[in-house]
């Protein structure tokens, strides 16, 4: 059974225009999934459906056996699926790091001694133990987002949703956050759903969903997705620059293989080609 299952989900804020239209998707435990779409494509609303922050008008959302249709199970869903949002300044509630991380466990009534342990666990998982007693005010954007991740991890969720969590960060901060998330996925087997508009963050995913106008228009592995250049561009997205360059070179007769997505790979292939000449 998949860990998360959306069946024919539709949602609208104003009961007129659906921002999510008839979406079905499933996520298996331990997967790294990317949901990509341009700004205003409905991908953020989709992220909120995943942990019952908004409830579907039609269709069903099931998370680890809990259904969002049952009001009593909403909190079970939120405990299972943690969300990290976009703006690092707008999701921390407390003026001291450890108090903020404690917020989630306090909400679900965890005993004091255990909260202490969970803070230790969560802060070390994101590599921020040193800042336990600091004020988040003086941290960088990337560090604040890592605290936000820790705040979510303290609830011991099975799934971590990144709702454009890197969009406001500088490249350094982005790198920090992505490597923390990747490590969690690999070592702690946390299921990751990265909602983003950065194509280069998609390359690493097991499965990709492309969202446009509230619908899932493409899905598959990254290399399957990147083959469909025209469809991707029609959705207001771009291939990673390395993929575009590779593509242009192939068009002009350079004998490169298909499916190059990263600059490392492109450089390797070009070097290999040179040695053949």
């Amino acid at each position: 059974m998949p860990l998360i299952e959306l069946k024919n989900v539709s949602f609208s804020y104003d009961k007129k225009i659906d921002v999510v239209k008839n979406v079905s998707l499933s996520v298996e435990e331990g997967e790294y999934v990317a949901i990509i779409g341009h700004n205003g494509s409905g991908k953020s609303t989709l992220a909120k459906l995943l942990n019952a922050l908004v409830l579907p008008d039609e269709g069903s959302v099931t998370v680890d056996g809990f259904s969002s249709a049952d009001k009593k199970q909403v909190f079970d869903i939120r405990k299972t699926v943690g969300v990290v949002f976009q703006n690092p300044d707008n999701q921390l509630v407390a003026s001291i790091v450890e108090d903020d991380v404690a917020f989630g466990p306090e909400n679900v009534g965890i005993k004091r001694e255990e909260i202490g342990e969970r803070i230790n666990f969560a802060l070390s998982a994101v590599g921020m133990e040193k800042f336990r007693r600091s004020s988040p005010m003086h941290l960088s954007g990337g560090q604040k987002q890592r605290i936000a991740i820790a705040g979510v991890l303290a609830l011991k969720p099975k799934v971590l949703v990144l709702d454009e969590s890197t969009a406001m960060l500088d490249p350094q901060g982005r790198k920090e956050v992505l490597s923390v998330v990747e490590r969690l996925n690999r070592t702690q087997k946390v299921t990751v759903i990265n909602v983003t508009h950065y194509m280069d963050e998609v390359v690493r995913a097991d499965k990709v969903y492309v969202v446009n106008d509230g619908e899932i228009v493409l899905s598959g592995t990254p290399s399957e997705i990147f083959k469909k250049k025209e469809e991707i561009k029609a959705c207001g997205l771009e291939l990673p620059l390395a993929a575009e360059i590779a593509d242009a070179l192939i068009q002009r007769g350079v004998k490169l293989p298909e499916g190059i997505l990263t600059e490392e790979r492109l450089a390797e292939e070009l070097c290999a080609l040179k040695s053949k000449i």
Partner: peptide, 15 residues
Amino acid sequence: RADELADAMDARCYS
């Protein structure tokens, strides 16, 4: 900000 904070609090099971 208030809106986003409310979402973030809800997501962390605040009730």
